[in-house]
Design a protein around this nucleic acid. Structure first.
Length: 835
RNA sequence: GGGCAGGUGGCGGAAUGGCAUACGCGUACGGCUCAGGACCGUAUGGUCGCAAGACCGUGAGGGUUCAAGUCCCUCCCUGCCCACCA
């Protein structure tokens, strides 16, 4: 043992290996893998905000460990990286620092690229992409045009946040919680603009159904969140005629009675419908008021439309549901009763038909509203056998029908179908399936994004740009002031163009695309990043897809992960991809915290990865991060923990020095050592397939501790063990492992070697220790040959003095033998403890 | 209000229904040292006990079982996501 300890020169050693990996192209992946044993590992690409943070280090380390492990187990591995480079922060920087968004972004990319390289992540850098490259975003435009041609892209009016002070559109994150502008404190208002949507709802059912392919590989939590987000519900649309009223009859289409259609998931409660409610935005809301109510209704609608969604939600929540009676009545389709029509802000225009039948007895929201406005409550569902009593709140469970004409006595489930069937016959209803999922609004009134490739021609109207004119480049020299219209609108050469159809003068669309478009298909571009003809070649994509392991934050469960799944399905329909899903397995990693909360500038609890890397090296940082918590959980940063990881790596290094410097006789304990080694191989290999990196590292610790206790370090067995240890350590601490491997073998990269497999002969033990319980409490232990039969074990245990003492006076009722683990002796009065 | 995840030593965490607290951090003591905050070793859930050992212990309370951190029921707390979706 060397007394004066020189710590391992990590930084020098890490630079050496990073350079060598790059020079030898160790992580360069083939264009088409030569067999089906391929592993495409992808971690969600970063936004180049300027500085790499701990969260990045954690995510990319997790991906790297998996990739390196797979490489050593014989897979062809692809691990690419790129930059989600469009977005608002670059525009903000442009306003603040008078620097072009592109310049700012490129600088950040350069800084982060060099950070990632210093972490030793095994990327195939030849495939690096940035979404702000025209080579990349031209394909966003190309996809948009394909979608437009297929009717998957359309335009409609939709509100945006608008600051009257700055005369500019604000993103949600630029609006303060008090609904004011982040720059000038003006009250933010809504403004309707023509905006582009992608018809993601055309794929609602597929997005839901194909969860079946993901049940094995995705966390259940994410699937549940998506399922709720898509929100499929089965129900019926029911038509209510509007009671005779001259103004409406006059306005209705010829020969048709005016009517209102509502959506319900509870047709079984139809007899309990005592009024109808329209959303304030409902097209009939204004026209349906009787003359004497007109002013009141108009006021109400104006007031509620003025509110922001948040304010409206808060106001309408709980028991304070505001509403106004229109003076009109609808005819109940089964009872022909006249029921009043109201307007209220608790009904949403975006869902269903924007109108509901209110069943106060069986829906709490309707109940609240009925109580407040003194509307009738009629119970039509009850528990089997229970007499109806006055309801103090809505009875929302299914039950047995009452007060429901011919349907009395049916169960809710039955009645749902029977009632809809009956209504279908008289043409008053049809069964429908509704989804909560909404179409994807992709228009952004921003200048640092992909220009939407559409023009408006004076004579031909809206026209898509011709594909041969792609990309539509972002103009240089736009002025960023944070005020007024989008900077692109003020670049005349950009806006003024010609019509692709008639050649006449036309005006270019100046909205850009949501950056989620960029990130919806980047995983496929990595497979053919330099293709100038197509977004990517079908053959190359087909060979590498799906992504075998995708890693990223849970916050993307209902955004990015749904958009990408949609894009994949749409690309499949364009014959660009095959297979139902883009990401076979998903890992949602936890965040990095300090003092219990996420690291953030505003909290001032940020630890810069660079400081840690400079002080301890990348291997130490990686090891700590992987050891401190399982990847799905949040990770509490600890400087002491980092030092622990650093100490461990130094310990491994010294172990190597001792083993290389000594050559004693073979020890008589060598079988023990090999048993420990092969147990470790087995455990670590198992841990790698279930993301148990923390327990895998614990096994490495144990193995190192065992080696330290080994009496003849340097003999053949200890060398062999060190050799395997180095392989097992390699995915976690790749630089150190390479260095040790070089000293041991001096041959080739440790990552070209084969991951060790456990040898069964060292996994069997001749003698094992079993716990001996009396009535479920461990009282002693017994050593027993592993091959002993249950009878033999039982006999030996019952012969133990301790067992006889504890059991004395009571008959032995039962003996449970769990092979290789424990024996439980149950005595006569075993229930409870009998002392 | 709904959905999901979680609650285990002083701390991070471990545990296919089968010996709770592996591994690490911290702490204490010892060794090595001119010295060390380096390194090596030992101990370390609580209470009682010189000890052997006993009893108690996985958010609270019940249940199933020979056996429960783990399964079931009721409840409390924390975090994340969604939120009047008819």
């Amino acid at each position: 043992m060397a007394n004066t300890e020189t710590p391992v020169p990590f930084s020098q050693l890490e630079r050496k290996w990073q350079k060598r990996w790059e020079e030898t192209g160790l992580f360069r992946a083939s264009e088409i893998p030569s067999s089906s044993k391929k592993f495409y590992c992808l971690v969600m690409f970063p936004y180049p905000s300027g500085k790499a943070h701990m969260g990045h280090l954690r995510n990319y380390t997790i991906g790297d460990v998996l990739s390196r492990y797979r490489k050593m187990t014989g897979y062809e591995v692809l691990q690419p990286i790129g930059w989600d480079a469009f977005g608002l922060p670059a525009e903000n920087a442009a306003i603040k620092n008078k620097v072009e968004p592109e310049t700012w972004t490129r600088q950040n990319i350069a800084a982060m690229r060099s950070s990632f390289k210093s972490w030793g992540i095994g990327y195939d850098w030849s495939r690096e992409i940035a979404t702000c490259d025209p080579d990349y975003y031209r394909w966003n435009q190309w996809f948009f045009i394909q979608f437009y041609k297929k009717g998957l892209a359309y335009r409609k009016k939709s509100p945006v946040n608008f600051c009257p002070g700055c005369q500019t559109v604000l993103a949600n994150e630029q609006v303060t919680p008090q609904q004011t502008c982040w720059r000038c404190d003006s009250q933010v208002v809504f403004k309707d603009l023509e905006q582009w949507f992608i018809k993601i709802t055309a794929y609602s059912e597929g997005l839901l159904q194909d969860h079946a392919h993901l049940a094995q590989g995705w966390p259940e939590q994410v699937l549940t969140m998506q399922k709720n987000w898509i929100g499929r519900s089965e129900g019926a649309e029911i038509e209510f005629d509007i009671a005779d009223s001259e103004p409406l009859t006059a306005a209705a289409p010829e020969g048709k009675k005016p009517s209102l259609t509502v959506f319900t998931t509870r047709p079984d409660t139809l007899y309990g419908a005592t009024f109808l409610v329209l959303a304030p935005e409902h097209p009939l809301a204004v026209s349906i008021a009787v003359p004497e109510k007109k002013a009141e209704v108009e006021n109400f609608i104006r007031d509620s439309r003025r509110l922001t969604p948040l304010q409206r939600r808060t106001e309408a929540a709980g028991g304070s549901k505001k509403g106004v009676f229109t003076g009109f009545y609808a005819i109940h389709p089964l009872t022909s009763e006249k029921i009043p029509i109201w307007i209220s802000n608790y009904v949403l225009m975006e869902y269903g038909t924007g109108a509901i039948m209110a069943v106060p007895a069986h829906d709490q929201r309707d109940f609240d509203f009925a109580k407040m406005h003194h509307l009738p409550i009629r119970q039509v569902i009850g528990k089997a056998g229970a007499p109806p009593q006055e309801l103090r709140e809505a009875f929302e469970e299914p039950g047995i029908l009452m007060n429901s004409g011919n349907f009395d006595g049916h169960s809710s489930e039955n009645a749902k179908h029977k009632i809809v069937q009956h209504l279908e016959k008289i043409e008053k209803a049809k069964p429908v399936i509704r989804y909560r999922l909404k179409d994807w609004l992709i228009s952004r009134q921003r200048a640092w994004g992909t220009p939407i490739p559409m023009v408006t021609c004076e004579s031909c109207g809206l026209q898509p740009v011709s594909e041969k004119d792609l990309p539509i480049l972002l103009p240089k020299g736009a002025q960023y002031t944070g005020q007024g219209e989008s900077p692109l609108k003020k670049v005349v050469e950009f806006v003024r163009t010609t019509c692709p159809r008639c050649g006449g003068t036309a005006e270019r669309e100046t909205d850009t695309m949501d950056t989620f478009v960029d990130s919806s298909w980047y995983y496929a571009r990595y497979l053919d990043p330099h293709n100038a003809e197509k977004p990517f070649s079908f053959e190359k994509a087909q060979a590498w897809l799906p992504v075998d392991q995708y890693i990223g934050g849970i916050e993307h469960a209902c955004g990015h992960l749904i958009y990408s799944r949609f894009f994949h399905k749409a690309m499949k329909d364009l014959n660009l991809a095959k297979g139902p899903e883009p990401f076979a397995r998903l890992l949602s990693q936890g965040m990095v915290t300090l003092g219990g909360s996420a690291m953030s500038k505003s909290k001032g609890n940020v630890v810069d990865p660079k400081e840690i890397i400079d002080q301890y090296g990348a291997d130490t940082a990686r090891l700590f991060i992987l050891f401190a918590a399982p990847p799905e959980q949040s990770l509490e940063w600890s400087e002491e923990g980092v030092e622990g990881a650093w100490r461990f790596l130094n310990r491994v290094w010294r172990l190597m020095e001792q083993i290389l410097n000594n050559s004693p006789q073979e020890s008589s304990h060598s079988r023990d050592l090999l048993c420990k080694l092969h147990q470790a191989i087995q455990e670590i290999s198992r841990d790698m397939t279930r993301f148990g990196f923390n327990t895998a590292i614990a096994e490495l610790h144990k193995l190192v501790n065992t080696l330290y206790a080994y009496p003849s370090l340097g003999d053949a067995t200890s060398r062999q063990t060190l050799r395997s240890l180095t392989l097992l350590l390699a995915p976690f601490a790749p630089h150190l492992a390479e260095e040790i491997w070089e000293k041991l073998e001096n041959r080739r990269s440790v990552f070209l070697e084969t991951w060790p497999t456990p040898d069964p002969q060292y996994l069997v033990q001749e003698e094992i220790e079993m716990a001996v319980q009396i009535n479920g409490k461990v009282r002693t232990h017994i050593k027993i040959p592993a091959a002993a039969s249950e009878e033999e074990v039982q006999k030996k245990v019952l012969a133990l003095e301790k067992v006889r003492d504890w059991a004395s006076g009571h008959p032995i009722r039962k003996v449970v033998v769990v092979p290789h683990r424990l024996v439980n002796v149950v005595t006569g009065n075993s229930k409870g403890s009998e002392q």
